[in-house]
Design a protein around this nucleic acid. Structure first.
Lengths: 103, 103
DNA sequence: AATCAATATGAATTATAATTCATATATGAA
DNA sequence: TTCATATATGAATTATAATTCATATTGATT
């Protein structure tokens, strides 16, 4: 995938969250754990694309999986994600009310 | 700059944080407020590049500025940034200890 | 063993973001 | 009012990330 510069980790982790497809996956996994194929179906993404994104999310510890035969059940590690969503939403409400269209 | 999809704001805000140059600026502003030129000098970045990044950080409410003649003093809005840094660092320590090189 | 289903992988392509470059604007000083 | 300094802006270029495509791998089924 790519190297993580351990001296400067923020870039990598926040970049992971700066992608809509990955947010779609995260939001889906918030409801319940899913198999790769089911994520792909639900979101109408290619299977391989979902795999790539899950790998990245996994590298960041945002998702884990359990194996079940030849399938993998991915689940969201909510411990960080949910507080971080809350934090960012509060931020947006407080500081970015007038946010619109072109910036 | 670009459109923000208000239905899906996470992407935009986290993407803003998923960039090393912007983190360099954030970390500099953590110490104290700076003028644009001084940020550029300190970090050895082009002035216009710093301006572009400051604009984006400002659009997200992560920095503000005060005008002083023809100069602008940028300062960090620490209210969200600092807790979010803490959160992410705890996450990394807890879930990504073995993180190394290739992932 | 042969086939099927689920997932992962890597290379190639395409899309997007970062950076540079040239220049505009605005303020302050001579 | 002319020049210098500080900053911003937009277009062009360059770099990077996302996506697709072809295929490999692994476990299940017949």
């Amino acid at each position: 995938m790519k190297n993580i510069d351990l001296d400067k980790p923020h870039k990598f982790f926040f970049e992971t969250l700066g992608n809509q497809a990955r947010w779609d996956i995260i939001h889906l996994l918030q409801k319940k754990s899913h198999r790769v194929t089911d994520i792909a179906k639900e979101l109408d993404y290619e299977q391989s694309l979902v795999s790539h994104h899950l790998k990245r999310l996994g590298a960041c510890g945002f998702v884990t999986f359990t194996e079940n035969g030849n399938e993998r059940i991915y689940n969201l590690n909510k411990e960080t994600i949910e507080p971080i969503i809350t934090l960012m939403e509060k931020h947006i409400n407080k500081f970015c009310k007038k946010l619109c269209c072109k910036t």
